[in-house]
């Protein structure tokens, strides 16, 4: 697999005024994103997510280190032909209509008028904004701005789509539509790199994630590997067991619960599974299910960030 994004020892320092001390926002960040992935870039507020994205988009220059897109400097024109970018809380030219804005963006890529016309219609339909195409963007809601922002990010049919907090400002239905679009982009072989605060949504779509805090990378890897590595408990569901067996099972479990004669025992480790199944069967009970309980991305994230505090 080829890396579409490479970040090597990236530092960024800011100085608000010349008499103020310099603040280091990124502290030697290293990261690689492979082609065809949906990559979640996660971190608390002020972690350096937007600064990293702005460096990748050629909006700011790194103080040290390198950020590369398709192996090239993002300040070059060539890699920018192949990317789409949706900024955080986007604000666009409010005197333009959505349609005019997309035409403007398309012209910045030198897309021919014929291709542009049909692509704009497709994109407006994709983000569900066909009805507001001729409305000036000053009349758009936050969610509508987010949608037109996604449409402009896709105007050049990019190979890499970078989205900064794309799910913020959307209602649940909008979030679902955005997630479907992201999954659809992946199915078409695109790479999606996005930052998000909404961790359950990120968990649903990401192949891989990176967690950053205070400008440093805490964890990076495939989501399944990161979360499978830490199984919190094994949930065993059964029924038709006598009280005495239930008592024995409780002593082997972290916690238990019963509803309408059905028992749920949370076993401590995988090693306890076979013993518990034998005990239930010996008492004439029925096993309904055995489910390993993984840590959610939210729990994993909280643990990692708290550990770095």
């Amino acid at each position: 697999m080829t890396a579409v994004i490479q970040i090597k020892g990236l530092y960024k320092t800011y100085q608000k005024h010349f008499w103020m001390p310099r603040q280091t926002v990124l502290k030697g960040l290293n990261l690689e994103v492979e082609a065809g992935q949906i990559f979640g870039f996660l971190g608390p507020n002020g972690a350096g997510k937007t600064t990293t994205i702005k460096t990748l988009m050629g909006i700011i220059r790194p103080s040290a280190g390198r950020a590369l897109l398709f192996g090239k400097d993002p300040w070059d024109i060539e890699p920018k032909q192949r990317i789409g970018f949706l900024p955080e809380s986007p604000y666009f030219y409010d005197y333009l209509t959505g349609l005019e804005f997309l035409v403007f963006c398309g012209r910045l890529f030198n897309i021919s008028s014929v291709v542009l016309k049909s692509r704009i219609q497709e994109l407006l339909a994709l983000v569900n904004l066909s009805y507001a195409a001729d409305l000036q963007m000053r009349k758009y809601s936050k969610g509508m701005l987010q949608r037109i922002g996604l449409a402009q990010a896709l105007i050049n049919d990019p190979q890499l789509v970078v989205l900064d907090e794309p799910l913020t400002g959307l209602d649940p239905l909008g979030r679902k539509e955005f997630k479907d679009i992201i999954l659809n982009l992946k199915a078409r072989g695109k790479t999606v790199f996005f930052s998000s605060h909404i961790l359950p949504d990120a968990e649903m779509v990401c192949d891989a994630v990176a967690i950053i805090n205070k400008g440093k990378l805490l964890q990076v890897g495939n989501l399944a590997d990161l979360l499978n590595a830490r199984i919190k408990a094994i949930e065993l569901n059964c029924r038709n067991i006598p009280e005495e067996t239930a008592g024995k099972m409780k002593s082997r479990s972290l916690s238990s619960n019963t509803i309408n004669g059905q028992w749920q025992f949370n076993l401590k480790a995988e090693a306890d599974i076979s013993g518990a199944i034998d005990l239930v069967k010996a008492a004439g009970g029925d096993i309904i299910s055995v489910i390993p309980q993984k840590e959610s991305l939210e729990e994993y994230f909280s643990r990692e960030v708290a550990g770095d505090a």
Partner: peptide, 14 residues
């Protein structure tokens, strides 16, 4: 100030 420059700066425009 209004960050509309982000849209242009991220596109292939010198």
């Amino acid at each position: 100030e209004k960050r509309t420059i982000y849209v242009i700066a991220s596109k292939p425009v010198e």
